[in-house]
Design a protein around this nucleic acid. Structure first.
Length: 554
RNA sequence: UGGGUCGUCGCCAAGCGGUAAGGCACGGGGUUUUGAUCUCCGCAUACCAAGGUUCGAAUCCUUGCGACCCAGCCA
């Protein structure tokens, strides 16, 4: 089986970097950063950015820092910091340096003083509402605040006293003095510092003023000597501000901001607010619920880091707003799991089958390959006995056309075992099928019967040896491709996103199942052990993804 | 009706003036003790539209049309 890495497709950022390297723009350096705000869990959309930033660094022998953009303590917490570090590492990346925007608070303050001294920033006493009113609209220019021409010395004094805690939250704000008539609203004297008496998860109560994103991000990038500052499209019209700040203050470098389109995946949402709502209103069971598009959720569902990395490479990188079909992610998951998952048998909805001509009390330990192609993965022993369990769906009294499983009077192959023929259907008083009575052909173990072909192959477990298990079948969380477009995204929740099967039977070898392994329950899908909810005597398995089903029913 | 960005196959996406890569999806054939995998084949005379430049245009120019983003003391 091939394990070749997908070839690295050209994309506009790779081209820019390659060109910068060629022209020696940054002395051969490539330095990127992944800059999450610790206000939520990382999701599949972040994965695209992580793979991009770390990927560019790895490909070019550069560096990539993990930098927490922790300038708004109201929404941030250490829980998120910890989860983000864990998820980045789980995805397979190691940061060059761990940084925090809050590491730069003192320097940021110093640069702000410089801005004031240069007459490029002023302390404004307008309220938030007034600032909004003064800002103008998309088609009308804004008008200057009465404080816009406050003398430098006064600004300096006020800003120092803002830091010292002399004023109430919201009483003053420091604004960059740029252009109230700019067609780019971001340039209409944006606020760069606000007063907030909020405990910061890292700096504690050392500060009561906090710098804003636009002011902080560019300087943080510059202080870290980032060469390529990669961000999403919505920051495109913030770029003039990014550049303006770095042109006014003397930072050690001036990184280039490059914007790309964020990931939009069908049947999911990635808005932090909405994900948070799903968790707090208990529409899902936590941030790591396998239905969540969070990395924690994908991990618990059994999705591998490799599959996600492959996905992020496959979807490409452009400036076009686009929607990726779920099928692409599923393909990537299946591709990895097909190659690496151990094959085992599990019966989700059991139907008893008695092999009438098999000796009472006899058990055969059949050696069955753990992988049909990769024989180096070895074999396992699977007990076979007179009474076995098969899937209810694998027997039909009135089979549809082209049905190739078990029907009355016909034969079917038991995976890794014998060919059996069904002779009798046993029913209860209500007409429900309770048992099948079959015979086996002793001469079909490891070979085809002579003179006839048996098309169907079904999975099974020995009733006496099988272990009970709970199997959770996960389906897409939403029933429409773009839940964000709904008036209320909660209305688009798929009511059948989780089916819990609590009375399944799994083959005995799974007694030793661990969370490290991925399994293919033959013919039903890929599963992994849920290490959180499994208990002694009853293991819980999560379905990662179904097997592709090419059976076109007529 | 201000500014920014984007329009190539159902969904992504190469292409950078020399005559439409690739992947997913889909359809069909073969192998198969998983209706899986694997494998073979098919799948845009056409690049938002209309003009223009050129021997030659998805690529250059013009004019339209459509979509997305921006008026937080969020990031």
């Amino acid at each position: 089986m091939s394990t070749h890495e997908p070839s690295l497709a050209p994309n506009f950022i790779r081209q820019i970097i390659a060109n910068d390297l060629k022209t020696d723009k940054h002395k051969g350096r490539v330095a990127t950063r992944f800059p999450p705000e610790p206000n939520g869990y990382l999701h599949i959309g972040h994965a695209k950015s992580i793979c991009l930033n770390f990927g560019m660094a790895i490909e070019n022998n550069g560096t990539c820092n993990l930098r927490f953009d922790d300038t708004n303590p109201e929404k941030e917490s250490d829980e998120y910091v910890q989860s983000i570090m864990r998820d980045v590492q789980w995805l397979g990346f190691s940061w060059s340096e761990l940084r925090h925007a809050s590491d730069y608070f003192e320097q940021l303050y110093g640069y702000a003083v410089v801005l004031i001294e240069k007459g490029l920033a002023y302390v404004d006493s307008l309220s938030a509402e007034q600032i909004r009113a003064y800002r103008g609209t998309l088609t009308e220019p804004g008008k200057p605040s009465p404080d816009r021409d406050r003398p430098i010395a006064e600004n300096l004094d006020l800003f120092q006293r803002m830091r010292a805690g002399e004023f109430a939250d919201g009483q003053y704000v420091l604004r960059a003095k740029i252009d109230m008539a700019s067609p780019n609203i971001n340039m209409r004297d944006p606020a760069i510092y606000r007063i907030r008496r909020v405990h910061h998860q890292r700096t504690g109560d050392a500060w009561c003023i906090y710098p804003m994103y636009d002011y902080t991000h560019c300087i943080s990038d510059a202080l870290e000597h980032i060469t390529h500052s990669l961000c999403t499209l919505e920051f495109e019209d913030h770029r003039p501000l990014y550049d303006w700040v770095l042109e006014q203050v003397e930072t050690p470098s001036h990184p280039q901001q490059i914007e790309f389109a964020r990931l939009q995946l069908e049947y999911t949402i990635v808005s932090k607010r909405k994900l948070n709502l799903l968790v707090t209103e208990k529409h899902v069971n936590g941030w790591d619920d396998p239905r969540m598009p969070t990395l924690a959720g994908l991990r618990r569902a059994g999705v591998t880091p490799k599959a996600i990395r492959d996905f992020c490479e496959r979807i490409g990188l452009t400036k076009q707003n686009s929607w990726i079909e779920m099928g692409v992610l599923e393909y990537c998951i299946r591709e990895d799991l097909n190659e690496n998952a151990l094959r085992v048998m599990a019966v989700l909805a059991p139907l008893r089958v008695v092999i009438t001509n098999y000796p009472d009390g006899q058990t055969e330990n059949l050696e069955i390959s753990n992988h049909p192609q990769r024989h180096e993965l070895g074999k396992r022993s699977v007990p076979f006995a007179k009474t076995i369990l098969i899937e209810q769906d694998d027997f039909a009294e009135n089979p549809p056309p082209k049905y190739k499983r078990l029907v009355l009077g016909e034969e079917v192959r038991l995976r890794g075992s014998y060919v059996i023929r069904c002779h009798e259907v046993v029913k209860d008083a209500d007409g429900n099928i309770t048992e099948l009575r079959c015979s086996y052909d002793p001469d079909t173990l490891g070979k085809n019967p002579e003179g006839r072909k048996v098309k169907g192959v079904i999975h099974w477990v020995s009733e006496a040896h099988a272990l009970p298990a709970e199997i959770r079948l996960y389906n897409r969380l939403f029933s429409v491709p773009q839940p964000d477009n709904e008036a209320n995204f909660l209305d688009a929740l798929n009511p059948n996103s989780l089916e819990v099967l609590s009375d399944c039977r799994i083959e005995a070898s799974l007694a030793e199942a661990t969370g490290e392994h991925r399994y293919q329950f033959e013919r039903t899908g890929y599963f992994c052990l849920d290490t959180v909810d499994s208990v002694d005597g009853k293991k819980v398995f999560n379905r990662t993804v179904t097997l592709r089903d090419g059976w076109v029913k007529d």
